[in-house]
């Protein structure tokens, strides 16, 4: 293992991911993005159960789903009036894209199986997301990126 570069073991799926840049990109915008989310009592990723409750056998599938979720439903709806924030979001999104590619390889090699629990967990996340208007849901999800990173 090297600084920031982690070999993620998701069961048979082993993926080398450099998290440093994603984390530093998020740290740079965290307070700004979270301040745009006025809803304290709702979480997209953690309601009703924390990601930490996901069984280890389901971690790969949940991670794969979540990276797709951020690519398809989150980053594109987070455009702000602040060009610095937009550039950092672009940086995170492009880093997510290269990680998503690696997870996809595992998925294609059937090393990232989806169990009942992970399917249920991801369905709940989509329900939480669709419970808000698109922009609020996207900004809230982006503000919860450290929940995903800490869990990974």
């Amino acid at each position: 293992l090297t600084a920031g570069n982690k070999i993620f073991h998701f069961g048979p799926c082993r993926v080398s991911i450099s998290m440093t840049e994603i984390r530093s990109g998020f740290t740079a915008i965290k307070d700004n993005i979270q301040a745009r989310d006025p809803i304290r009592t709702l979480s997209i990723l953690s309601y009703p159960h924390s990601l930490h409750k996901v069984k280890s056998s389901d971690r790969c599938c949940v991670t794969h789903h979540l990276f797709n979720f951020y690519m398809d439903k989150v980053f594109k709806h987070c455009k702000t009036e602040d060009s610095y924030i937009n550039r950092k979001i672009s940086s995170i999104a492009n880093s997510f894209l290269s990680v998503k590619r690696k997870l996809e390889q595992c998925h294609e090699q059937n090393k990232c199986m989806c169990g009942q629990e992970s399917t249920e967990k991801f369905k709940q996340i989509l329900v939480n997301y669709e419970g808000l208007n698109v922009t609020s849901a996207a900004i809230k999800s982006l503000g919860e990126l450290d929940i995903l990173l800490d869990w990974m």
Partner: peptide, 17 residues
């Protein structure tokens, strides 16, 4: 313009201020 902008964000461009 990163790959993300091309594939997910309507080929948008981002200015470098």
């Amino acid at each position: 313009q990163g790959e993300y902008e091309r594939e997910y964000a309507n080929e948008s461009w981002i200015p470098i201020c």
